[in-house]
Nucleic acid binder design. Structure first.
Length: 283
DNA sequence: ATTCAAGGCGCG
DNA sequence: AAAGCGCGCCTTGAAT
C-alpha cells in the first residue's frame, strides 16, 4: 500500500458513511492500529516521523462524558469536570460513598465501566457481565449512579422520549440520526434503537467537535503557510501531526489551544498532547 | 474468481 | 434468546 509517488502509506477517509457523523478510514484502516497490548504497540512503532520531525498526537480527554455533562446539565457532573477531577474517581466516590482519596482501584474500575456503559445505553445486565458481578448488585450501582446524578437520568429519559416522538435524535449542532426501529414491535430491535438514540448525541457531538477543530487547524495552517507542520491523521478523538523538531514545542501548544477552543461547552474541553519519534511514543 | 454472511478482533 | 455505541479487515464456508 506504499504510494510510489510519496513512498508513504495513505488511508482514505470517508465523510458520509457512519450513522453518527464520524469519519471512517479504509485501505488501509488507520483508525484501528493496535495500541492496547505490548505486541500491538510494536506495530504502532512502525509509524515513524521523517528525519528531523516528530509525531505529535493530540487527543481530547473524556470528550463524550464531557458532552454528556453539557447536554444533561447535571450539576454533579458539570461540577466534577469544572473542578478538573478524575471523573471515574469522582463517580466512584459518589456511588460508593467514600472520600476521593479513599477510592480503591476496584471501585474506580467499576465506576469507569458505569461511565462508559452510560454512554452506550448499557443495561444492568450488561454492566453485571462487564464487571463480573451479580445482576442485583449491578442494578444497585446503576440506581446509586442515577440517584447521585439525577440530571443524567432525566437526560436519558428525555432522549428516549424525543426519539420516540420525533423519530430522530440530534447532535449539539443539529445533525440528525433517524431511528426507524424506535417504535418496533420487536422488543429487541426497539431496545437497540433506544441505545443508539442514547449514544448518538454524544458520539455525534464529539465527531462534530473534532471536525470543527480540524477546520480551525486547517485555517491556521493555511495562514501560517509553513510546510514544517502537517496534519496527517484523525482517529475519532485525536489528531496526529508531523512537526519539524525546531518548532515542535510552540506549534504543539498552539494546536492544543485550537482544539480546546473548537467549541464552547459548559465544562472545560481539554486536549492533551504527546510527542515522539514514532506513533507509539506520541502517546 | 468473485461475492456474501457470520464470527472474531483491532480501534475510539 | 438477547440484553454495549460506532467502525473495517481477516478468515471461513457456501453460493454464484
Amino acid at each position: 500500500m506504499v504510494s510510489p509517488k510519496t513512498e508513504r502509506v495513505h488511508t482514505s477517509y470517508h465523510q458520509a458513511v457512519t450513522a453518527t457523523g464520524r469519519l471512517s478510514s479504509t485501505d488501509p484502516n488507520l483508525q484501528n492500529i493496535p495500541i492496547r497490548s505490548e505486541q500491538g504497540r510494536k506495530i504502532r512503532q512502525a509509524f515513524i516521523a521523517p528525519t528531523n520531525y516528530k509525531i505529535v498526537a493530540i487527543d481530547y480527554s473524556q470528550i463524550e462524558l464531557r458532552i454528556m455533562a453539557h447536554l444533561s446539565n447535571d450539576k454533579g457532573l458539570v461540577t466534577a469536570f469544572s473542578e478538573g477531577k478524575d471523573i471515574h474517581r469522582a463517580t466512584a466516590a459518589e456511588i460508593f460513598a467514600v472520600e476521593l482519596d479513599e477510592v480503591t482501584t476496584d471501585q474506580r474500575r467499576s465506576a469507569k465501566a458505569i461511565n462508559f456503559g452510560l454512554i452506550y445505553g448499557m443495561s444492568a445486565f450488561g454492566l453485571a457481565k462487564q464487571l463480573n458481578i451479580g445482576r442485583h448488585q449491578a442494578q444497585e450501582y446503576q440506581d446509586k449512579y442515577f440517584q447521585r446524578y439525577p440530571g443524567v437520568l432525566t437526560y436519558m429519559e428525555d432522549t428516549r422520549q424525543q426519539a420516540s416522538e420525533q423519530g430522530f435524535v440530534e447532535t449539539l449542532f443539529g445533525r440528525r440520526l433517524y431511528l426507524p426501529d424506535i417504535k418496533a414491535k420487536n422488543g429487541m430491535r426497539k431496545k437497540a434503537a433506544e441505545r443508539a438514540a442514547i449514544n448518538a448525541p454524544m458520539q455525534g457531538t464529539a465527531a462534530d467537535i473534532i471536525k470543527k477543530a480540524m477546520l480551525a487547524v486547517a485555517a491556521w495552517l493555511s495562514e501560517q503557510n509553513d510546510d514544517r507542520v502537517k496534519m496527517t491523521m484523525q482517529v475519532h478523538d485525536e489528531l496526529i501531526f508531523e512537526i519539524h523538531q525546531d518548532i515542535v514545542e510552540e506549534t504543539t501548544a498552539k494546536l492544543v489551544e485550537l482544539m480546546n477552543n473548537a467549541v464552547e461547552l459548559s465544562v472545560p474541553l481539554i486536549a492533551e498532547a504527546g510527542m515522539g519519534d514514532n506513533w507509539d511514543e506520541a502517546h
